[in-house]
Simulated scan of single mutants.
Amino acid sequence: MTNKTLAKPRGSETLWLEGASDLLCGGGVEAVRVMPLARNLGLSRTSFYWHFEDRDALLDALVARWEEKNTGNLAQRADAYAETICEAMFNLFDCWLDDDLFDSRLDLAIRNWARTDPKLQVQLNAADAARKEAIERMFVHHGYSENEAKIRTMTVLYTQIGHLSMPVQESRWQRLAQMPDFVEVFTGQRPSESEVGRFMSRHLTE
């Protein structure tokens, strides 16, 4: 049996990033270390360096992944086609229910990390600005004034950040049932039964 056969697999860059994300969410940035990460993944420490130059490169890739997934997908959902503002808000709410679109745990972990990292805080500020711009654009597109769009956008984002920060005890289904009411609070309009039905149908089957 050759040494090549005996060698542990290198894993993939995605696997290393997912493992790093779990460590960050569970223990903060200081928990993201190469040896514990390799041990958790069942991979060798040396295999890490096939994908990343060092720990700093891993952290940079983790932040880039967060920006692309969370901020990128949020902006896409805000820009998605919708005939009404209620439908548009439901499109945005997909982010709060689908971890493939928006990783809420990672978003909170990045915010906590940024408190002690000025460079990351600048990136976080830019991400928040991009999210605000996308949601404000959504409101303006549906007929709200720029000032009203700004206020309603802040209400949406601050509520979501607060939800992430507080240990809210509710099931996915409880939160889903509340969302038509949140749409009304955020938009000032009551969603129609058909809008609620379409939104529920794409999440009740998950």
Rank of each mutant, 00 (worst) to 15 (best):
K69N: 04
C86M: 06
G143C: 10
D117N: 15
W113F: 07
L120N: 04
D79I: 01
A127S: 15
D128T: 05
T84H: 14
A134C: 07
E67H: 04
K69S: 10
R65Y: 04
E68C: 05
L101P: 14
T46L: 10
E67S: 00
A149K: 08
F139Y: 15
R65Q: 10
G72W: 04
P118Y: 00
H141N: 14
F93G: 01
F139G: 03
R65H: 09
Y49F: 10
R111D: 07
A82F: 05
F52N: 03
R65E: 08
A129T: 14
F48E: 10
H141Y: 13
L101D: 09
A114M: 08
F93Q: 11
A129Y: 12
P118N: 06
C95L: 08
Y81N: 13
A129E: 15
D103H: 09
R77V: 00
W96C: 13
A130C: 03
I85R: 07
T46D: 11
E133W: 07
H141E: 14
E67T: 05
L62M: 12
F52D: 00
F93L: 11
L59V: 02
T153W: 12
A126L: 14
S145C: 04
E136P: 06
D100W: 12
H141R: 15
T153D: 07
D107K: 06
F48G: 11
A82E: 03
L101T: 08
L101W: 06
T155D: 05
N147P: 01
V140H: 09
W50R: 00
H141F: 13
L58V: 12
D103L: 10
F90A: 06
F102K: 01
